[in-house]
Design a protein around this nucleic acid. Sequence first.
DNA 1: ATGTGTGAAGTGCTTCACAGCG
DNA 2: CGCTGTGAAGCACTTCACACAT
Lengths: 230, 230
Amino acid sequence: MKRGSKRRRAGRGAVISDLTAQRLSVYLRCLDDLEKSGVATTSSQRLADLYQLNSAQIRKDLAHFGEFGVRGVGYTVIDLRRTLARILGLTREWKVVIVGAGNLGMALADYGGFNREGFTIVGLFDSDSAKIGGRSRGGVPVHDVRELAAIARRDQVSLAILAVPAAAADGVLAIVAEAGIRGILNFAPVRLKPRAGMTLKAVDLKVQLENLVFHLTRGDGASAGRQSRR
Amino acid sequence: MKRGSKRRRAGRGAVISDLTAQRLSVYLRCLDDLEKSGVATTSSQRLADLYQLNSAQIRKDLAHFGEFGVRGVGYTVIDLRRTLARILGLTREWKVVIVGAGNLGMALADYGGFNREGFTIVGLFDSDSAKIGGRSRGGVPVHDVRELAAIARRDQVSLAILAVPAAAADGVLAIVAEAGIRGILNFAPVRLKPRAGMTLKAVDLKVQLENLVFHLTRGDGASAGRQSRR
DNA sequence: ATGTGTGAAGTGCTTCACAGCG
DNA sequence: CGCTGTGAAGCACTTCACACAT
């Protein structure tokens, strides 16, 4: 389920829906893939065929930001890749903290996907003194959650991942907000109240599983879900 | 981004959107919460206020399945909770396998959220002989992925969680499909091609993080995202 | 008096289909 | 000729607002 505000100004002054923004990330990944495969140029149709997308939608999404293709030809993979990275704000390094050094927090800290492509996990934070001072297998240090604000400000941390129990999540959100962090990815199975100026996304595994069950129970045929996060 | 078919028959013969289905899961969680707090009755307005929902939408969503409220009064928490569980197909136990016994797979296997409320993790599966025969900290056994089909059929497994590297995901999807599993939650950062009759949802952490960055970069105010999975 | 259930209105998202450009 | 970029059409989702039931 979604909540909250929806749109933001595009380069041209237009407004971009959240759905569009998520698709841009998907397109970026597809282009990464093509670039690795040595493909030099592509077209909206080819992308659509390869990755189960809609070619008109790709063109519409890109059109919000400018004209990046060549009529009759298509897109240059490298250029479009770079353009998307710029649109998405991925031209600089983004610092991330993970609050909650349990199994999930530790696993996320070591999860390779983050450390490439502009995200750096600065540290794990917990309130359990048995964990503080330790490290994840990958070497990410575990700090006292009371040090969060100081470290977040010092290292210019913009993003936090919440991997704490449901009961603790609300308090942790306050701490994270207090530390000046405004982008939050919540894995705790609770609905949190976002503070002003904060962007809060939830990854709720139980809701996802329940949704699969709903589909199976109702016995629909080939269906497919969100390639997002969501 | 979403893909694939969208809708399925409701109890009355109507058709239910995926967004509605996800919200039903959210409502269920809210009612669980209220029930634990000892609240006996509630109303769409109260739910909306407490959990940042929209009261009209709650009523609309429920209306697809019947009339569960009392005019002038509201809903009985326990009854509505039970009704939602039934609608969502959560009246029986659902068996789950996790493919990929790395950090993430292990963490998910031990993640408390699953083991309550009708989901049972039957086992972890991997191709690494160093991991096969072991167990997660929580005691979930790690099997050879080649045994997946046999075990899945024996234990009537309906759901699989993919926690394997991107490069392995496509092959694993084939194995899982072959084992007769039709509901799949994919954590690998790739776009998989769903097979016929399969429901495939992706939880893509990188897309989620990139989306947070997009919001921060464009500097919108209080916004909030998908309580899902996204 | 109060809150549901719901037609109707409003808003947003996706897809079509083609002009126009290379 | 092929493919982009885009207005227009189509479709889906959300919100409004009120009749009706209790």
